[in-house]
Design a binder for these strands. Sequence first.
DNA 1: TTGAAAGCGCTAACAG
DNA 2: CTGTTAGCGCTTTCAA
Lengths: 365, 365
Amino acid sequence: MSRSPTPRRRATLASLAAELKVSRTTVSNAYNRPDQLSAELRERVLSTAKRLGYPGPDPVARSLRTRRAGAVGLVITEPLNYSFSDPAALDFVAGLAESCEAVGQGLLLVAVGPNRSVAEGSAAVLAAGVDGFVVYSASDDDPYLPAVMERHLPVVVVDQPRDVPGASQVRIDDRAAMRSLAEHVIDLGHREIGLLTMRLGRDWPHGPGPALADPERVRAPNFHVQCERIHGVYDAMTAAGLDPASLTLVESYEHLPTSGGAGADIALEANPRITALMCTADVLALSAMDHLRAKGIYVPGQMTVTGFDGVPEARQRGLTTVAQPGVEKGRRAGELLHNPPRSGLPVVEVLDTEVIRGRTSGPPA
Amino acid sequence: MSRSPTPRRRATLASLAAELKVSRTTVSNAYNRPDQLSAELRERVLSTAKRLGYPGPDPVARSLRTRRAGAVGLVITEPLNYSFSDPAALDFVAGLAESCEAVGQGLLLVAVGPNRSVAEGSAAVLAAGVDGFVVYSASDDDPYLPAVMERHLPVVVVDQPRDVPGASQVRIDDRAAMRSLAEHVIDLGHREIGLLTMRLGRDWPHGPGPALADPERVRAPNFHVQCERIHGVYDAMTAAGLDPASLTLVESYEHLPTSGGAGADIALEANPRITALMCTADVLALSAMDHLRAKGIYVPGQMTVTGFDGVPEARQRGLTTVAQPGVEKGRRAGELLHNPPRSGLPVVEVLDTEVIRGRTSGPPA
DNA sequence: TTGAAAGCGCTAACAG
DNA sequence: CTGTTAGCGCTTTCAA
């Protein structure tokens, strides 16, 4: 087996120093403090480094010494392949990656997820070489949160959960945003409303597919965001003199391409008089639209449909929805980690949203 | 400022050992080799660890000692926000993330990209605490490749460039795939063909927007993949007795939502008799389709359009294209890093593709 | 400008 | 089952 002229043993800063007959400090300075030695000596160091195949100070050893890892850890409990197919989550990751790149920090996707046990995932959190964590949209009893907290590193929580001690937060006002949207729907004249939402708890007491949600589950939700959005609808209904209890609430374990359509069926079966179908995510709404259309139900003529997020496809297809700044969320989360507030105290950043009145909402038939 | 009862100085394995009056080895074993000590002692170690707020062995120190970082570095030179909006790249990242998660490795997005200088990006590569790198679809003169090579770590290259010494490779047979697709188009009867492709070189000698490509640029391309696909079309043309020089070739600097449409205009202006517009990416083809339709040109009645990649939207819209296994690419790249071939020699894995005959190709008008 | 000394926090032999 | 001994490769006072 022919090998390149690499010494059998990896070159180190010490071996380089020995070769050059200078001290390790000098070599270190050549890399980290160019102003601490003559240009020519530095040149000599760098060139013999190249000759010996020395790639510069070992990142791990340096991190140990400087106590900085140069990376941010991202904890997303939802399956990654799912996150990567959810445009809203994607925007967030893109924004976070962008802000990390801007300051030369790496972004470490921590190996937590459904393919591994909670113990393994927690171990991955404890073993992550990072300077801080971003936790994205976790449930309030997320199994990895304890491990994240144990690390005693800076933490920024995005969307959920609320009330992580010591953690800064980036989110939107889900309740107010959803209320505005619901007001728009009610103003159009709708009285019988269905609401499709993601699962309200970590547990799933139903069979496969979406199911009517027990109002009980709204009261003790694991996902704060879902809950707030539901309450936003309640708020609008109450303000308009409608009975919130009349809302037909359907929860879906996850956002599959079929979830919206299946959820729509369940809602309409439970209450055939529904004229507006609100959804807590665009992907749900788009799926529902496709399904309704296939069944010959015209949107918005026979059914108003609304979403949440403002993903590109939704805008393109004219969905009435709430746009939230996904990329900006990621960016702000990163910045909060890179430039923590002077006070040292956690901050809460509430980003703006905007109701988009599209072509999928109109007066009831 | 009230503080939780955390000792001012972070607990370490040594301090824990001192507190317990056992050796450091014992504490280390409690975490790494549970079978090396009695269950009760281990319990005692773990519980006082919890009491002291010791989160377990420091990841960085452990990495230094074990020589394993527990993470894979991903180098994508294209802007991350772009990668995250390209469904094909996304599939790849999802597959890679999945394979990393399966073995408990983290995935580190290395901070290279257009917001930073080459020097900064290279520094990020040299400073990445990883056990290996995956390089995704880089040009043959990618500025970060040298830094990657310097690290002397295992490397897997995906798609491009070819011929990275010592690196394993995962790719498809772009030329054969594109040839099959072109054969389909030619079999339908098309003789005047346009081809829209991504930029052929790192440099961009044209103004903004797509432009007719100098055949010269096909000869010395920086992007092997593009070149192979073009040659696939040449192959099919030659085999069918057509003159490859008659191909109208348009290159576009990047894949913007408008690139396909603009490229189509340029191609049709250069040769109004074109009846088939092939594209080296689905996003280009979809954009072209939208644009043609807006101009009143019916697909496939008046114009055949084909893509490449087989992204969800393309399948959904019935685009005639080549499906390539994006997720599988990522997964295989990860596996190659996690379980390198026994031989120690680099391997080349060529994954399968499939021509999808959709509803956007038909006989010429 | 350069060098010597002192660890960062941990694991891996090896011995007891 | 437990402890002792040696570093992993680097940066950082502090002195020269």
